[in-house]
Amino acid sequence: MARRATPEVNAGSMADIAFLLLIFFLVTTTIEKDKGIARQLPPIEEIENPPIIKQKNLFIVNVNRDDQLLVEDDLMDLKDLRQAAIDFIDNGGAPAGSPEHCNYCKGKRLPDSSDNPDKAVISVQNDRKTSYKMYIAVQNELVAAYNFLRNRESQRLYGWDFTVMKKGIDDGDITGSRADDIEEKLQNIQKLIPLKLSEAEPKKSGS
């Protein structure tokens, strides 16, 4: 008569085992979050007859060993650098009618600043003792200036932001024929506002 019930397996320690595993994974893993400023290094070979860049097409940013910023021979705060760079790239100083004339520039068209965005070159000079923090801050501001202008142009031509669409393509959110179409337009914008950042070999630190 007495029905012997099979004893239940005690699952009380299951939670402990799972917690142990959970803590192990929590400790040994990191959530992927790496982002950064991408840059292309110039090839090492010497270019024969380097193109001569006119003084007015050159925007010199100098950072000294105490992390002070010297822009076109004037001391400048980091927060003003972005606007200064935008003003320089967007100046469009070449007179109307000349082949260099920039018809989409909205700058002040000063004759002693850059002819057009294609001619404008930003040159960054560092001291070897400049802190990496300052170096990245300067690079960030200069890229921001280019991104601002690229966004403005893509808004004008296509009605969307350059950076937003580029991120969409990089993340793989935009695919198929639409991606090809946008890729082409992105390159168009890059041609209008090419990123011309040059880095001089840093000077030996003056002791």
């Binding site: 982002k35 400023i37 840059r39 960030n140």
Partner: peptide, 16 residues
């Protein structure tokens, strides 16, 4: 080495 593509890893935020 002809590894021309680099990326400076940054953390989110702005130094200014």
């Amino acid at each position: 080495l002809q590894m021309y593509k680099i990326i400076y890893i940054t953390s989110p935020g702005n130094q200014i």
